[in-house]
Nucleic acid binder design. Structure first.
Length: 425
DNA sequence: TCTGGGGTCCTAGGACCC
DNA sequence: TCTGGGGTCCTAGGACCC
């Protein structure tokens, strides 16, 4: 059996832990740049605000009534870590799937007491972290997802729902479950399934797996098996190093200036290099992309990207930034107002298994040792003294690309200075 | 004025090899 | 004159997730 533990309206719940005045009120958390609503309290959902609703399209009445906060990822990340620490008390097998969801494996635990154990887990998370969670228990991940939704939606379950693979109850649930609400089935696949007369989870479960595989893919076939109670989806090891590293941001306001994009890419490049070193990898190529805002009708549109190969695999910020700058120079055009740019590190290899080149000299070896020490120092300073203590190139005043986040709450759990600000302010 | 950011896996098709 | 059959590797793009 496997449980899916999922924080209710996670970002909102994190905010409420530190500001109880938000309890019972419509609360929303916004994406970067305060662009759209990415988390909603039940009260805000009840007002009809959808997931991803653009902030500037919200009716004025709702804006007056609701508390809308900028996102505070330092806080959510730390709360997420705490929740997972509690889960680890209940099973050695905890897989953090996303910032607000974890799978907890209960293989080998006696089934008779599992539901009780899950209730205790839920209460403990609430007591120790302040975060309310829902728990869905089932033989497979796809069914655990369904059970988790039920646990949250139906008050009768009191936050914990156990869904068996067989039985009349399961059949009734799946017959009423639109196929597009399953984990792994979205609109496109849903449209094609509808053409085959498959609209509900139950119909998909009863479909011939081989036929599904032929018509779609092995991915959908696995979902059929999972619906039948046979585990077919393994989770990627979350500890495994990433295969690509992407850092990108929308600008605070549009800009057509090369130096704005250059400065933004320097920041994104430095951040991506930090992530690269954090997982012990080297990159063999850097991809740079730029684009205008596709939502503005009548505005000339442009988007482009370029891959810049690196001569040797590297994790030195200076090499990566130089490659990013060359990439930008190759695709930048004047006459457009840009809205976003980003850097992706590609073709990553393990730093410990670096292939040595025949062309390398002793001097290269010395240079690499120097680079390694410098980067380690940069990372340590930024980690211990705060992000951007050391950076590459000077920031400009009033830069166009700086994020807007005017409604951010304090980093209560990770910064003493901001905790004090609450008490005195 | 204003619409997020960061990932994964799979498949098809081309290039190349014997 | 005859013009196979199988394999690998790589890349771009689609679909999906939170």
């Amino acid at each position: 059996m496997i449980a899916l533990v999922d924080g209710n309206n996670f970002y909102v719940s994190c905010e409420r832990v530190f500001d109880p005045r938000l309890e019972g009120r419509p609360v929303g958390v916004l994406s970067n740049n305060d662009g759209c609503v990415v988390a909603r309290s039940n009260e805000l959902k009840a007002l009809g605000v959808g997931m991803g609703a653009p902030m500037h399209l919200l009716p004025p009445a709702i804006r007056r009534q609701a508390v809308l906060l900028s996102s505070n990822y330092a806080l959510y990340g730390d709360m997420s870590r705490r929740v997972n620490q509690v889960l680890a008390e209940f099973s050695p097998d905890v897989e953090a799937y996303s910032i607000d969801e974890s799978f907890v494996g209960f293989a080998g635990f006696p089934e008779a007491s599992l539901e009780e154990r899950c209730r205790e887990l839920r209460d403990t998370v609430r007591r120790w972290t302040g975060i309310p969670v829902g728990v869905g228990l089932a033989p497979t991940r796809v069914l655990a997802k369904v059970a988790n939704h039920l646990a949250k939606r139906e008050p009768a379950f009191e936050g914990v729902c156990w869904l068996q693979a067989e039985g009349e109850a399961t059949r009734r649930v799946l017959e009423a479950w639109p196929v597009t609400e399953l984990w792994g089935v979205a609109r496109r696949t849903g449209e094609r399934l509808a053409l085959m007369g498959i609209d509900t989870a139950w119909q998909l479960r009863e479909a011939d797996p081989k036929r599904i595989r032929r018509a779609f893919s092995v991915v959908l076939e696995r979902i059929v098996w999972e619906l039948r109670g046979r585990p077919a989806i393994a989770l990627d090891d979350m500890a495994a190093p990433r295969q690509r590293i992407l850092v990108s941001r929308s600008f605070g306001r549009l800009t057509g200036a090369f130096h704005d994009l250059e400065a933004a890419l320097r920041q994104h490049g430095a951040r991506s290099a930090e992530k690269l070193r954090g997982q012990g990898s080297l990159a063999r190529a850097v991809m740079v992309f730029v684009r205008t805002n596709p939502f503005i009708a009548g505005e000339p549109q442009y988007r482009n990207s370029v891959v810049v190969p690196l001569v040797w695999p590297t994790d030195d910020s200076r090499d990566l930034l130089e490659a990013a700058r060359r990439g930008l120079a190759a695709i930048f055009l004047t006459g457009y107002r840009y809205q976003k740019c980003g850097v992706m590190l590609l073709d990553l290899v393990d730093a410990d298994h670096r292939q040595h080149s025949l062309l390398e000299t002793a001097q290269d070896e010395v240079e690499r040792g120097r680079s390694k020490r410098l980067m380690a120092t940069v990372d340590r300073l930024n980690r211990e003294m705060g992000r951007d203590t050391v950076r590459f190139g000077l920031p400009r005043e009033g830069n166009a690309w700086a994020l807007r986040c005017e409604r951010r709450t304090s980093c209560y759990t990770t910064r003493w200075d901001e905790l004090m600000r609450v008490k005195t302010g």
